[in-house]
């Protein structure tokens, strides 16, 4: 950027010195000279402007090549990096959804097994108590002994199933490793795109200086702000505990609501 600054500096010093000359010529009534000075100024400005636009175009072109945005380019592989990143993120969505469903399937299959074991244990416990208090006849005891035997067999079988389900739940978490790798690569790409965009923006600023274009930053910001409609939802807050306008926990939400009379 140093080179650009000195270029713009050249333009500005030429502008300054020629402005004096222009004023002098006009004061002396020498219009021919004045027009000459204006032409000279235009030439310097145009040269700088073309130079900067040229650089900007080159950079844009190399950015397009780098990110393989244009599939018609000879360097482009089958898909652009951005399309590829989108596909990768979709893969993450699918994988996490599959893992969540797999886990919930197993939990739903496990719950009745646990429930059965508990219910039968409770019922046997009550009858066992009757037996220990000698409140049980021989016939009832034979019945109880059969149920205990069945319970032991069922418990062994069902706890085997449960331990299998727990193992599968554990394995269903393997998406974390794979999606983590994918997300890291996409994050890298986003960082790269951002720094390249920033570079392009700085170059465009040089063009703006030569062309004398000024942007109303305030208006742009206001426009952006207006686009942000909280009714549409923003999704999860990443730094909830550091932001003042965000409820950091359910307790915060409850406090806020109770302050509103809830």
């Amino acid at each position: 950027m140093e080179h650009d600054d000195s270029q713009v500096g050249d333009f500005e010093s030429t502008l300054k010195s020629n402005a004096h000359q222009l004023l002098e010529s006009l004061e002396r009534g020498n219009f021919g000279d004045a027009v000459q000075v204006i032409n000279e100024l235009n030439k310097v400005r145009d040269r700088g402007l073309y130079h900067e636009v040229g650089k900007l175009t080159r950079e844009l072109h190399s950015a397009i090549v780098n990110f393989q945005l244009d599939p018609r380019l000879p360097h482009a592989t089958e898909v652009s990096q951005i399309t590829d990143a989108t596909e990768r993120l979709n893969y993450v969505v699918t994988m996490t959804e599959d893992a969540a469903n797999r886990t919930m399937d197993l939990v739903e299959q496990s719950a009745p097994l646990v429930n059965d074991i508990r219910t039968e244990a409770q019922s046997l416990s009550a009858d066992w108590g009757r037996f220990m208090r000698r409140e049980m006849g021989a016939e009832d005891f034979r019945e109880l002994a059969k149920r205990v035997e069945l319970f032991l067999v069922n418990s062994e079988r069902d706890s085997g199933k449960l331990s299998g389900h727990l193992n599968d739940i554990l394995l269903a978490q393997d998406y974390q490793d794979l999606t983590g790798q994918v997300i890291k690569r996409v994050t890298q790409l986003v960082t790269e795109v951002e720094s390249n965009l920033l570079k392009l923006m700085l170059m465009a600023t040089q063009v703006d200086r030569y062309a004398g274009i000024e942007h109303d930053q305030e208006a742009l910001r206001a426009e952006k702000q207006q686009e942000k409609n909280p009714s549409q939802g923003e999704g999860p807050q990443i730094h909830a505990d550091k932001l003042d306008d965000v409820a950091a926990s359910q307790d915060d939400v409850d406090d806020l609501l109770s302050s509103l009379g809830f």
Partner: peptide
């Protein structure tokens, strides 16, 4: 959604409970 403005907005719209 956990912005204070949003929680207030939901309360004003007549929500009965809000869980984040």
């Amino acid at each position: 959604e956990a912005k204070r403005d949003q929680i207030i907005e939901a309360a004003q719209a007549g929500v009965n409970g809000y869980v984040v």
